[in-house]
Design a protein around this nucleic acid. Structure first.
Lengths: 196, 196
DNA sequence: TTAAACTTACTAAACAGTAAGTAAGGTAGC
DNA sequence: GCTACCTTACTTACTGTTTAGTAAGTTTAA
């Protein structure tokens, strides 16, 4: 593996673990067996390194979400939820980076990134609207639905260790795969917003 | 208002906004119109200041959650969810601090705090178990339910500005009170885990 | 006069970023 | 086929800033 790839690999893990501000380039350099100046040889600054990791994942999520079309809002919502799970599973760092940004109010999101996130959210809105229009969904605030979908998926990844620590005091098994969680969420959300 | 209270007031906001590591005591001092050394006069170190803010809120949440007992798991679950909403509404900084800790895997949680969080989680487990035992709840992983309850409530607070930024690109109204969200979540969760 | 409630002025470490240098390999000109 | 000169891919050693934390001194009120 060449040095640039090595830097990106280590940096992804670091940003996932500590968030943008918490990451030290010195530390990345040490773990990647290069000097800090080598990072600056490949990337203009800390933010360019960050964006190089983050942007492609957002774009892949958009592609995944928009890759499926159906007249059935239930199928569409299911695909929307599983798109997140699929990309989060493929890039575990991605959901953790998003988690850090969300609690930080997107401090390091450029306007470009905000627009891409809006595009993702727009898809959910159109799914919900069609469902309401077809009379099969209850009227629900899309922001609430988005929060109910994305935050458990994200938190599932980022609270892994915390759950492990808590389970020392409680007799309970740690849950398994993010796709299982996505299935659960998908079923529960559908059950929750379907009209009876 | 005396200086200690002023420091605590400012510090709460700062920890909520930036998380433990992101907070600068120099900055708190400036905003509270004291010197940094004044903070060290009242608090042994940064962590003691943090714990002074965090611990009482956790304890109040425990009290609130355990203040209600019923044989009806539906009522109990509803109370469990609204306990979070009540305390989060009373201390908006609390949910944001929790959010930062959760994405940080509880890096600044002492064993003491972990035990208290376990106690909270235990209540949910016993509610779910009773519901399952009475045959009215589906068998669901309590961690998933906890995530579905707490993460949207927390994220609702911490993504406020982010949602505002996104709504520039999307024609949608920002949702209102956290208690409305709690109501929505409570209804949806119940609908989701109730056996039909 | 003494204790509480601070302030001033510092230290040491960590941080993003940079300037200047260098080793290795390729290329151009003769 | 050999020298001169680039370019790529870095490293060394630094700057300036921000940080948690401290030691020693000062003011104020009982």
């Amino acid at each position: 593996m060449n040095k640039k790839e090595e830097i990106l690999k280590i940096a992804s893990k670091e940003f996932a673990k500590y968030g943008y501000k918490g990451v030290s380039l010195e530390n990345i350099a040490k773990k990647a067996n290069v000097t800090k100046a080598a990072i600056y040889y490949y990337f203009k600054n800390k933010f360019e390194l960050y964006e190089t990791i983050l942007l492609p994942k957002i774009e892949e999520l958009i592609d995944e979400i928009y890759s499926f079309n159906s007249d059935n809002p239930i199928e569409e919502l299911n695909h929307y939820i599983h798109s997140y799970a699929k990309i989060f599973k493929k890039y575990p760092c991605f959901s953790s980076i998003l988690a850090h940004e969300f609690v930080d109010n997107g401090r390091n999101f450029t306007e470009n990134i905000i627009q891409k996130l809006s595009k993702i959210f727009n898809k959910l809105i159109s799914i919900l609207n069609r469902g309401i229009h077809q009379g099969i969904f209850e009227i629900t605030n899309p922001f609430s639905v988005q929060l109910m979908i994305v935050s458990p998926l994200i938190m599932h990844q980022s609270t892994k260790n915390l759950r492990k620590r808590i389970s020392k005091y409680i007799d309970i098994k740690i849950d398994s795969d993010i796709e299982d969680i996505a299935n659960t969420i998908s079923k529960k959300i559908l059950k929750a917003i379907l009209k009876e």
